[in-house]
Amino acid sequence: MRYLMTSRASENAKAPDEKLFAEMGAFIEELSAAGVLLATGGLEPGGVRLVSEGDDVTVTDGPFAESKEAVVGFALVEVRSKEEAVELGRRFRRIVGDGESMLQQVFGP
């Protein structure tokens, strides 16, 4: 089964340092080799927002005021159980420090 983990930044998050990069690099490499990590990436702040209402689709360019809510990164993982995904998420959060992540199972092919 596949899970998508999306992460949001925290206001008091520590600035990334050398140690974080090294740990993160090793973590990503380990999960890629094990075939667990299918895709991952960081996301631009802001982006483009599309809102549909009736027949209208409104397109707004970022940045947006509520940047705290913004998703800054994602990871798509292939795991055997929810618990496995949670365990991976746990390891990830320990590396990146303060903030929050969301785990959701991906349905479909």
């Binding site: 055997r80 618990e83 496995e84 949670v86 365990e87």
Partner: peptide, 14 residues
């Protein structure tokens, strides 16, 4: 239980 499942998941990984 949840702990059982966690133990099981970690066991499979390790």
């Amino acid at each position: 239980t949840d702990v059982h499942r966690t133990v099981d998941a970690i066991w499979k990984m390790e």
